[in-house]
Structure formats: C-alpha cells, structure tokens
Amino acid sequence: MSAANSRASVSKVPQLSRIRPIYFLIAAWLVGVLGPYVWMFITSITPPSDLSSIILFPSHPTLAAFPSLLTETPFFEYLVNSIEVAVGTVVLTVACALLAGTALSRYRFRGRSVVLAGVLFMQLFPSILLIVPLYVELKTIGLIDNKIGLVLVDTAFALAFSTWLIKGFVDQIPREIEEAAYVDGCSKWQAFRHIILPLARPGITAAATYAFIYSWNEFLFAMTFTFSNSTRTMPVGLSLFVGENLIRWEFLTAGGVLASIPILIGFMYAQKGLVAGLSSGAVKG
C-alpha cells in the first residue's frame, strides 16, 4: 500500500457519514477563537477617545495605530528579535531533543530514568523563583542582554517537554523497520536519517511548534535578562504599552494583530509536517 492511498482512505471514513457536524464544530470553534481577536482588531481601529463609547463598531475607524506603532515605538525591532530568538530556540531545542529523545528511546543505559525524571524536575517550580540563580549564571558567562543567552534559557525550559515528546514518537516506530534497514546495509546514521527522522516527523513538528511558541510568548526571562532595544522581545514590547497612568489600547491591539501574522503564516506552513511519516515511501516493500 502506498502512503498516499492510505491517507485518502483514513479521511474517507468519517467524511462520508459526518461531513456536516464537522463543519459546524469547526465553525463554532473558529468563532470562539477569533471573536476576541476581532474585538481586539476593532479596538485597534477605534480612536482612543471613542473607546469607552463604542457600541459594536467604531463610527470613525482609523488605521493610524499601525504606522505610529511602527514609527514611534521600537515594536518592530522587538518583533524581529522575537523571531530570531524563537528560531534559535527551535533549532537548538529540536536538535538536542532529537538526539536525547532518540537515545533515550532506543538505548538502555545507566542513569536513563534519572535523566528522564530529572528533566521534569526543573519544571516543578514557578520560573519567578528560579530567576536569580539563572541571572547569576548568565552574568557569569557574559550573556546578559544577549539574544544567545535568551535562546539558551528558553531552550533549557523547552527541552524537557520536547525530549519527552520526541522520545514518545520514536518509541512508536517499530524496531523491525530499523532492523530491516540494517539488513539492507544501512549504517546507524542512515537508519536515523532515513527511518527515524521521517517517521517521527509529526513529533518533531509538534516539538518545534511548542518550542517556537514557548519562546515567542516567554516574558519573564526576556524582561529580566535583556535591556536594550536590540535584544528586547515582543511580549516585553507589548507590556510597555501599559503605563502607570496610561494604557495605549490602540498599540496593544495593533501590536497583537501584527504579532499574530508570523505565527499564522508559520504554522500554516509547518502543519504540513503533521502529516504522517514516510511520504517518500522509504520502507515500501
């Protein structure tokens, strides 16, 4: 059987009988998710003076918040920093989690369960209570106010779940496939490259998505460990629109809208990786 065929068949099962309910469900979900964002967008095009009196749609909508957000505040710079830090975190996290996850899944070695439990240990505390020792560590290695420092910290926290996740996916790959590959003369590396990697792809995609979003949303570390406009990230940028005596709703919401665009595009592309494994048909026959 070919992968393409099987994909078609799995979708046919429910499609024939229950096409309607699915679309109702999806529609309801979309309304629930997007409603607040639509409201946020309406807020962003409402002049501040009308904010408290708008009924459903502003009478004088304005897009002025967007250009002034980009020209009068460093928000765009922060957004670019965020993308850089998030991409760095994804690359580092996925690389480490893939190695660690595969090793933990495929090999039994001393201390294995200690490592497995140990990576969960860090997650047990609210990060605010871990921040001072982390600060000192980063300062010691000279990575305060540095995007690389932020990537390292984000990776450290995103790694636990990513490793476990990828380990779980590798666990699911039958060893027989690998063994068959060895019989065919594959090296360990080739088996990893051509069998584990493609078969674990949904897991890797999920881990990458998680690491990206973790870093994208991360606020406390970014606020504490960075200072200059060239290192600050987007969530910190958003927080600056809430002043002591002033909330710049139009900036907050316009910033929120802008920040969701890379995510939307990124995930529409990345979700293709959520399609099952060996699309190249590597183990056919």
Binding site: C96, L99, A100, R106, F109, V136, E137, I141, L152, L159
Partner: peptide, 27 residues
C-alpha cells in the same frame, strides 16, 4: 560503545543546551 555515546549525547544535549551550569551562588 554506541550505548556510551548515547549516554554522552543525552547528557551533553541536556546539559549544554540547558545553559552552562556555572553555579555561582548569588553572593
């Protein structure tokens, strides 16, 4: 051999990426 390398890979991946464990007490 491979087993040991796997151990090392795991530990290195977790420790290195987990940022240096330079453990200076805030003093």
């Amino acid at each position: 051999m491979l087993r040991r390398m796997a151990t090392i890979a795991t530990v290195v991946a977790l420790v290195v990426a987990g940022c240096s464990s330079a453990s200076t007490t805030p003093s």
